[in-house]
Design a protein around this nucleic acid. Sequence first.
DNA 1: CTTGGAAAGTCAACAAGACTGACATAAAAT
DNA 2: ATTTTATGTCAGTCTTGTTGACTTTCCAAG
Lengths: 170, 170
Amino acid sequence: MSNGTKPATPSGESLLFLTDDQLRKGIEAMFFAYRGFTADPDRILENHAYGRAHHRAIHFINRSPGTTVNNLLSVLGVTKQSLNRVLRALIEDGLVESRVGTRDKRERHLYLTEAGTALEQELSTAQRARMRAAYRQVGPEAVAGFRQVLEAMMDPEMRRHYNQVREGER
Amino acid sequence: MSNGTKPATPSGESLLFLTDDQLRKGIEAMFFAYRGFTADPDRILENHAYGRAHHRAIHFINRSPGTTVNNLLSVLGVTKQSLNRVLRALIEDGLVESRVGTRDKRERHLYLTEAGTALEQELSTAQRARMRAAYRQVGPEAVAGFRQVLEAMMDPEMRRHYNQVREGER
DNA sequence: CTTGGAAAGTCAACAAGACTGACATAAAAT
DNA sequence: ATTTTATGTCAGTCTTGTTGACTTTCCAAG
């Protein structure tokens, strides 16, 4: 059950930050903040006739050039059919290049083209600007806490992707 | 570490937390964490043939019983047509009650029924559990930082809703 | 070597949930 | 009396998720 009643500091520490009401505030903070988080890229994407799904693909291809479709799939947590539609558009429009794998010809390795890199820059610059303003406003200690809570909230597989070091093209 | 350049502490403070790479990590943290944030409610909603949109409506009606449709609209940031579809389903299924306003008969005031409250409890209990585990793991200082960054990331209107005190039925 | 299964990717069709636009009704405000 | 506001509805579109069926490629067991 939920402990909506007594503060109850059993070990001498204040556990007031664990009350249902505090948790609710945290939940709403996530909801409202996520909207701000996506607002700027969304505005840019409208002008390019793309959506949030395209942004995500571009972001992670940029992060891991040469990644395979399968790899991208597990990072994004969608079905391959869903991702395929997005990739097809990006490839047709010349933002992403898909190279057949040399080791395994079933695989497609994905790279941003020059145009793809340009859009990625436009998007991430806007998104970083908001993040930077927030970071600067609250300072490094708060940022550290922010990152800690978010990491603790992830599913294990997502945490794996989050902490993954930048992998090369192989 | 990789950063072979200069720490560059112009004002004496370290600004390493504002590098593009740190900001990118923060962006990805938001992305991955939001998935965990919605994962548990999403699982529950499947069994009830509802979606995330229904969850959001239920959450905010529970937070502000007697809120009007217009009010809910600005909190959720969707169109009335979109919200209406969701509300119609919830009302038909007997989870939400819509009462014509007494002061202003154009308004509809929204309340959770007993069944609605039950589902809200089920959803929020699951969502709070994850949040509580994360909070407990990282401690109150980190949580404070988490909340500060999120609030700084919100658009002003969302921040208004976020900080809004619980409004009664009037 | 062949064959059968697994893996990677693609195509087609469908569903949820967002959107816009147009319109209707009732009530409040001017 | 007229206009504005709050709400609801119908129709149609778009994005992005889903499942199902299919092809190509790889690999391993017979």
